[in-house]
Write a protein that binds this DNA or RNA. Structure first.
Lengths: 207, 207, 207, 207
DNA sequence: GATGAATGAGACTTCATTCAT
DNA sequence: TATGAATGAAGTCTCATTCAT
């Protein structure tokens, strides 16, 4: 029908490719300079347009950030859910989750970096980003139960505080986004293998 | 006696104590909300004064941040240098450095969190914070050489990429500042021991 | 035709015209109230916009001042250089320079007043205004050499201190900006003639 | 009597010497940096005290400025009135007034410079400085009538616009404060004589 | 007489956002 | 689709001034 729809924030039909492009540019800047320190004008400059023009595609700076993070988390959970539904043992699950995480870092480096840097503040300050907290809790439950199952079946050491271990593993994996470069000499799977080797077996020589 | 003394010893010179107090308040807010997202007014509110009054003590918001980070790093390097000058073997050095790091987190939790969140941007954007990069490089050299010495004498596994391991260890330690609470149920030394157990021996059961 | 042209010639590029307009308003206020005593908000009020909007056109209050003074000095030197390149004798040169100066006052009254009031401080306090000092030195050289040539060829009295005379002439001319009104009953050329009469022949009756 | 008087602003008996000293320091800074650009703290620094302490001696920054200017103008008018009451002819009066003006510049260089730079704005902006306008009007009347008497008796050229000539002479004299240095190679009387020679006889060679 | 600490108003500036074209 | 111009809120910082000690 002849009614023109203004593009929707989440699924807008108008020029979805351009949207993606703009979000990628925005994500790169957010990751590098920090969300607050990034001006809309900077994103526009990098996109070859003027600041005001971005508002044709997005409702606000916050909306861009939200879409970046949602896209990343949606895809991440797709992968995680596949792993979790595969009926693997705890050790295998653990390794698969770590590997998927490094793949996510590989594909969404900017989004991961943003998530690392900003999530805490966003959750505390804006209701719009409550979904981040939801994801975090689901995350925690997933990893904790995997670790506990692993302890139960004797695959993980029983003398570790599971909560501390959870944080240890979580940080260990995601912080890699701050230095990992897709074009570096390791593939995500290789990095994952190295990390797993350290986390599972330690860095000390076994005596 | 009729001699007028300026500041009484009992009261102490007011300014330095108040400065410390204000810096602690500022550090707490910076850590919680992020440096950019923190307004000078917020710091003043938390200090029971008006925004302008802070400028009686400090030249600028940046100057406050700089002093917070310098104080932390200066003290940290005092401890590190003591460890490094003690003539310990690489394994012992490693453990001592980790322990000192957790002690630093215990004493300067806010400063560590700020350092984690902001250092990258500060180095890139303001010459005033070049000292952060200097510290980072010294840091890297210290840890890398300790790891390499450990590999050389057979205390650390030889099959690990030292740079990746360095990042792994570094992140592992400092990210703890984002969740560690001084009043929690573990002392810094206990946390250090748990971390060392995981990092050195791994979380998997030895087969 | 279907080709879209960006700015129409009839309208002209909006920005440069508006800039000029805003600079004229700013110059008037700077001249009347003094640069420091003038608030950006005052300029905006006089321009029918909000203070922040000025920053769409100019980087800062200083930048506005700089552009005002540069525009004035550039044009002044254009005229001076034409006079100096005309191969006139010292007396004629002197008269032509004075006349051009009064014309400049006529066209850039506000800028001249600002220059008179602020140049000394600006040169001392901000590197950005070093060009004012350059101009001053060139100015001094020009007038001094004209006077000296005049003395040499016997057109000016030989018993005067040239430096003192230079200052006398310089001040005499430019201070007029503080009271000259373009709409007054004298044209710049008429004012120039009166000034020249006084300066060259004195106000006393010849005995 | 045992009552302690707080020092009065204008005639305060408490430490009048210190007041003078402070006013001299303030005048020097006002003259060099401009009134608005001068901070109370700067004056205090130059006086070896803290900003707040100045308020023991003076009610406000404005009050300091007022006292500086009043002191200067009072003394100037004392001298002028003496000249005007001496029953001299217009030419001699003219020369005597010019000479007194250069003496005033010699004794109150800072005050004269401040007067030159700020009077216009002060008169327009603050009622407290209305006395400046009173003085200006008296000034104008004095010089104008001297010039007119001189024309009437044939001592000054009749073909000059008296108002323009008045401004010419006035500016010519006072602007000297901007470059005259008491320790320079000319005494105020010598400078006066040079100025009079130029103003009365012109700089051109008589043909 | 002077200090040290704080106030409060106001300055310049930045920036996300809007909207007519 | 995009621009150009403008808004308005908010932020950092300055500074004259006050006042208890």
């Amino acid at each position: 029908m002849p009614t023109k729809k203004k593009p929707q924030v989440t699924t807008g039909p108008a020029a979805p490719a351009r949207r993606r492009e703009l979000l990628d540019i925005a994500a790169a800047v957010f990751a590098e300079q920090g969300y607050n320190a990034t001006t809309v004008r900077r994103i526009a400059d990098n996109s070859g347009m003027l600041a005001g023009s971005l508002y044709y595609y997005f409702d606000s700076k916050d909306a861009m950030l939200e879409e970046i993070l949602r896209t990343f988390l949606d895809e991440l959970w797709d992968q995680y859910d596949t792993v979790l539904g595969a009926g693997l043992g705890p050790g295998e699950t653990f390794q698969a989750l770590v590997t998927e995480s490094f793949r996510a870092i590989d594909r969404h480096r900017a989004a991961v970096a943003i998530y690392q840097n900003e999530a805490k503040q966003l959750i505390a300050q804006e209701r719009r980003f409550a979904f981040l907290e939801v994801s975090q809790l689901k995350f925690e439950k997933t990893w904790l139960s995997t670790l506990e199952r692993g302890v139960a079946v004797g695959e993980f050491r029983a003398d570790l505080d599971t909560r501390v271990t959870y944080r240890f593993v979580r940080d260990t994996v995601w912080v890699a986004a701050s230095w990992y470069r897709p074009s570096g000499r390791y593939s995500p799977e290789q990095i994952a293998r190295q990390y797993l080797s350290m986390v599972l077996d330690g860095i000390a020589v076994r005596t």
